[in-house]
Design a protein around this nucleic acid. Structure first.
Length: 771
DNA sequence: ATAAGTCATTTTTTT
DNA sequence: AATGACTTAT
């Protein structure tokens, strides 16, 4: 077993202590993933059947990586391991056991948008004040209730919650929760939180199901344990109750998901729940330089709540940590990108050795522009996901509706898209009837002549219903791809996009093709029974031969799989590109050169997280996560001025900069000196070189007077108040509605500008080349 | 009835 | 800065 020789003493002990509850406290860069994968490999080599090992992670990426690394050691047997995210593993089990809790096995998974839209319509139906009962607020309340395993009944009885909701002036949230849950159930839909909540109740209410999975999973491993919430912990506790071979790996100092219900208390509870728990602390860091490790240690001591540990390293001291002070957000972009360029030249680095980490997605813009200017390829993770795009959601809605007719959100989305003469009024009428009679929207539409006598669009509705039913009939005879392609064509979606010859329309069309290709891959992959590990899992649970072959290559299976996928999981990062992402998405990753940007008070730590000590400490842990991603070179930056909601904001440097030992910092102008200067001096320093035109909220200034969009045509050279001189590539909209979308090309690149008034000055009416 | 003008909102991180 | 909701002017 020579793979054990690669480990240090603590790591080896953590790997070989296979029996009984184990907690591994793993600092950043301490070889956590290695220990986890070796532990699984070790179990397999000891003769444990891979079918009986369950490993739960937070991201699909982590799961895939783990499977691949285990496979390298133990070979093809790794296929049979049950490795996945909490959500995907539970979705799979729920899919199989669905009938027990009254769900169809092809239940829909509502994403956040679906949930919020449903809440929005419930609030409207109830005649409540929609500015008070905002979908996001109501959804958050419901979400945290579910993550705390609290159902609608308990919610409405809980004294504290009643008091909270009354205090915030929203006493009806409990009722909304109940209605929401009912509607989801009627629609055969689960939201993200239901995947945990329903899983727990499945185990509690059906002892035979609990017994089955308890016995099946002899070894359970949990990655990123500090980020589990109460529901997840409770499920694991139940599943592990027979064999008690539960191994959790985590680092309390890297807990950054409390907004999702994660609680450090799980770590404390774990010690209480398993008195004979063995704890291993991995404190040696193999990733970063001494300077970086020192800075991280120092920063985290400002937090009160933590398990004491001292991270140390044998690595070199390395370069000092550089701090850059930028004048503005755009200036910050330039400074950072210049620095990347210089470092690339000096040390012959690849683009993918660099990562720019920020607090919020909105910060990426300045860096993208600067990178494009120097022709450095880059990739932005997160942001608007592929699966969130309108065209993608439209087709998926058709597919979802085909698989599950009761899926109300999908139904509402596509019933009149492409337009077929079924207006908002008809849908609302139908919904009203449905709620009155306790029927589903689909059922009302199915028999619209009975339920909605005299409704003008009944013929269209019937045609629509017939169409969807005809798709459903094809489920049995066609594979996922053939059906999806058929639907794209015959629903009119593809035609609609094909007719749209604009740049935007073209890219939408391409996106749809890409989705179809993805489905093709899926259906080909799943029809190859020998290659699919997932299918085998289903055949062998408990020794039963499950009649699941059809199920898992179905469209329904595909839909459930991609509902839980994010862009991060989709992209392959062997491209040579500079990586831009939020710090949250960077968790678990490492890069030779890391730039942590936007270190300003109110941005990082974020304004929204300054109301309590706990929140501030979480922001600090986030900072800790950020700086410990770096292997060799770490650079921090902040901008004195930043645009937010169209108005300039002047910020102080982040308090976190103060918390780093100055001895390891390399600052051109010390942030201390900067912070110490008077308010006026500070801002004159910061803002001096910035000269901006006054901002016009509505009316263009005299120079930019072409506020009639009819005057502007393709190919014209125009000047925009902010983006400078460029060429109009494409124009949508008209002067009639005072709004237009302009595709604008300047030396930086192509830009889409949406304007209420044309803030453009015509430079040259050159229409040459435009034919 | 339509066009033009005013006002309010937006405020984080993700499975 | 951008946009949806709402109000006022013609």
């Amino acid at each position: 077993m020579n793979y054990l020789d690669e480990l240090n003493d603590v790591q080896r002990a953590a790997v070989t202590t296979t029996e009984g509850p184990v907690m591994i406290v793993a600092g950043p860069g301490s070889g956590k993933t290695r220990v986890l994968t070796y532990r699984i490999a070790h179990l397999v080599q000891l003769g444990v059947d891979p079918f009986r090992i369950l490993a739960l992670t937070f991201t699909n990426k982590a799961a895939t990586e783990m499977r691949e690394r285990v496979e390298k050691i133990v070979g093809t047997e790794a296929r049979n391991l049950y490795i996945g995210t909490f959500h995907s593993v539970f979705a799979r089990i729920l899919r199989y056991e669905a009938s027990k809790i009254g769900y169809p096995s092809n239940f829909t998974i509502y994403d956040t948008d679906d949930s919020r839209n449903l809440i929005k319509s419930i609030v409207k139906e109830q005649g409540l004040n929609d500015s008070l009962y905002k979908p996001s607020i109501v959804h958050n309340r419901i979400s945290s209730a579910k993550n705390g395993l609290m159902g609608p009944e308990e919610y409405q009885k809980d004294v504290n919650i009643i008091a909270d909701d009354a205090a915030s002036g929203r006493p009806k949230i409990g009722m909304l929760y109940e209605l929401y849950a009912k509607r989801c159930f009627m629609a055969g839909a689960m939201d993200f939180d239901d995947l945990l909540y329903k899983m727990y109740y499945l185990l509690v209410k059906f002892p035979d199901v609990l017994f089955k999975y308890q016995n099946r999973f002899r070894y359970i491993l949990i990655d990123e344990f500090q980020d589990t919430n109460f529901a997840q912990y409770s499920i694991v506790r139940k599943l592990g109750a027979v064999h008690e071979n539960v191994c959790v790996v985590g680092d309390d100092a890297q807990s950054i998901y409390s907004f999702r219900g994660a609680t450090i208390e799980n770590i404390l509870n774990f010690e209480k729940d398993y008195p004979d728990l063995k704890i291993f602390k991995l404190e040696q860091n193999y990733r970063s330089t001494k300077h970086i490790v020192h800075a991280a240690n120092k920063v985290i001591t400002n937090n009160r709540m933590q398990i004491t540990k001292e991270i140390w390293t044998e690595n070199h001291h390395g370069e000092k940590i550089k701090v850059l002070r930028a004048v503005s957000d755009n200036d910050e972009g330039k400074l950072i990108v210049d620095s990347i360029f210089e470092e690339k030249m000096r040390n012959q680095r690849m683009n993918n050795e660099f990562a720019i980490l920020y607090r919020t997605h909105a910060q990426s813009r300045a860096f993208e522009e600067a990178l494009r200017r120097l022709n450095i390829p880059y990739i932005v993770y997160g942001g608007v996901s592929f699966y969130q795009r309108k065209e993608i959601k439209d087709l998926l809605a058709y597919l979802r509706l085909t698989v599950n007719h009761f899926d109300e959100e999908s139904l509402k989305r596509v019933i009149n898209y492409p337009a077929r003469g079924i207006g908002q009024t008809s849908v609302e009428k139908a919904l009203l009837v449905a709620n009155e009679k306790g029927k589903r929207l689909w059922e009302v539409l199915e028999h619209c002549h009975d339920y909605l006598p005299g409704n003008r669009s009944n013929t269209s509705i019937s045609d629509f219903v017939t169409k969807i039913k005809s798709y459903a009939l094809m489920l049995k005879t066609h594979d996922a791809y053939a059906l999806a392609a058929h639907i794209a064509k015959t629903s009119g979606l593809l035609q609609e996009l094909y007719n749209d010859k604009t740049v935007e329309g073209l890219s939408r069309y391409e996106n749809l093709q890409e989705l179809l290709n993805g489905i093709k891959e899926f259906s080909e992959k799943s029809f190859d029974a020998d290659k699919d590990p997932i299918e085998q899992e289903w055949v062998t649970i408990d020794g039963e031969v499950l009649n699941e072959k059809q199920l898992d290559k179905s469209l329904g299976a595909y839909l459930q799989e991609i509902s839980l996928l994010t862009d991060f999981d989709k992209k392959v990062d062997n491209d040579d590109r500079v990586m831009l992402m939020t710090i949250h998405s960077a968790k678990g990753l490492e890069f030779p050169c890391v730039y942590v940007v936007g270190l300003e008070e109110n941005l990082f730590p974020n304004m929204m997280s300054l109301s309590s000590r706990e929140e501030l400490e979480e922001e600090r842990r986030l900072f800790y996560v950020a700086i410990t991603r770096a292997k060799h070179k770490l650079t921090l930056s902040f901008a004195g001025m930043r645009f937010r909601f169209g108005t300039p904001q002047y910020n102080d440097p982040s308090r976190f900069l103060e918390e780093i030992d100055p001895a390891v910092l390399d600052v051109a102008i010390s942030h201390r000196e900067f912070a110490a200067s008077s308010h006026e001096e500070k801002f004159s320093k910061v803002t001096a070189p910035i000269r901006r035109e006054p901002q016009y909220a509505h009316k263009p200034s005299a120079d930019f007077a072409a506020d009639d969009f009819n005057l502007i045509q393709n190919g014209m050279e125009v000047e925009h108040q902010r983006f400078g001189i460029g060429k109009v590539i494409h124009l949508e909209g008209s002067s009639k509605d005072k709004m237009a979308t302009i595709f604008f090309q300047n030396n930086v690149g192509q830009k889409k500008i949406m304007l209420r008034y044309a803030k453009l000055r015509i430079v040259k009416k050159d229409l040459m080349g435009e034919n």
